[in-house]
Design a protein around this nucleic acid. Sequence first.
RNA 1: GUGGUCGUAGCUCAGCUGGUUAGAGCGCUAGGUUGUGGCCCUAGAGGCCGCGGGUUCAAAUCCCGUCGAUCACCCCA
Length: 463
Amino acid sequence: MALFQSPTGTKDWLPPDSERMAYLISNFAAHVKLANYHLVVSPMFEDSGVFVRGVGNESEVVTKEMYDFVDKGGRNLALRPEGTASIVRAFLQHNPPVPFKAWYVGPSFRYERPQAGRYRQHHQVGIEALGSQDPYLDFEVISLLVDWFSSLGLRDLVLKLNSLGDENCRPEYLTELSFYLEQHQDLLCPEHGKRWQSNPLRVLDCKKEPCVLVKQGAPKIKNSLCLECAAHLDTLVACLDEHEIDYVLDDYLVRGLDYYTRTTFEVACNSLDSSQNAIGGGGRYDNLARALGGGDIPGIGFASGLERVLLACESQGIMLPVSLPPKIFLIDITGGGVAAHLSHTFRSHGLACDRSFDNKSLKSQLRQADRSGAILAVIVGEKERAKNLVQLRWFSVDYEKRFVQFLTSEFSSVLNLTAKRDNSLDRIDPESTKNIITQYGLSSMFPEYLLGFVIKKFLFYTT
RNA sequence: GUGGUCGUAGCUCAGCUGGUUAGAGCGCUAGGUUGUGGCCCUAGAGGCCGCGGGUUCAAAUCCCGUCGAUCACCCCA
């Protein structure tokens, strides 16, 4: 047992999982770039006020889950519990032209008990679009999320959609809801029986039997929406219909961040058995900028938890690509200097290769080469070094055959190209090189100065 | 913050109701005639049995605490 281990709720990402995560990130970046979103990197900690005023001092995320601390200068800071508030803070600080379309990736921190798909440090990708109230922007954001998931191959997803209204209609609804809850407070679950007043909407999110029964008769927000909010939702829904993006209208989709107005949405993955099956979620936050001291800057965005997306892919047998090992492994039994030289040269030509260290035995190095997944070992011993040759050893008969075929059929064109492209190789004349290769056997001994070029060309042809 | 389950080698796990120097498979390292991988054979390294306390002649084993993991609640990605 190591003296130290990663703190509760955090984990180390090692290959191959780390590579799957890297793949998800670059895949996501390419995806949102199609819609002209650009990367914003904001600090992982902010003035606590950014979250208290932004996310909401009533929300659980702020009241009991925030990693806050006082720094050496007496500042009240907090590790970011989510990404949106930071992006809006950055927007207000720099005042870029609108619409401002940003994507981000990075860790978020919440002090809570870890379980399947929930960590104290987790990683999100997300986008935020600021400066427009257009419902077609809602469509763009939601479709980007849904389409990204389907492009990964995920199935069994449910898009839940709701509108929470705005400052015109929500207060009325809340009054109505509170009135209803007050009448039924004795029937609520023990927790909400006393706490429903602080945030009546939260009761709608409760999954306990008593609350579920009560909320069935509760007034629904969709019946209270003002004309503008109703029209906004109608346009969005019609656009989703038109593009055959399936959704479920969910009157109880409230979400725990206080800044949401109008559109809220969430994508749940049914193949995840755990109760943490939301792999992405977001909504519109037309009042957030004002809460952070800015003007009336509307916005909408989503975040998606990478750990959960990876779990979802795993549960559906989706194999995300990991980077392959180099195809070439250098074996040097003269001490290691030749491998240093050859690997340096190979890499300068863009050829990936690996080698062993510590002057291991030939057998040991070959074993390492084979296990590494390489298809070719380039071997140099004293005999080879004396003649400036290397020995090629293919790990499969198939590759060896193809290489011989390649040399015989492509031989003259390879050498012509060599002479044109690289002046340092102009001493190669086709006839004498052919003699050398014939002399040593096509696929075993090989002149060192031809190696990089020919191998590169061969690998290009075979892949 | 509340509750259930579980902590033995890098990994997956044996170790019965307490009883000698704690085991297996996989992985790792090195050998199997002087320079050739994969299969096979041999050997080796690697464990304060999570940590601390208690019961006992004796604890990996029983009891308590603690830390960690895991699952659920709450909430969220």
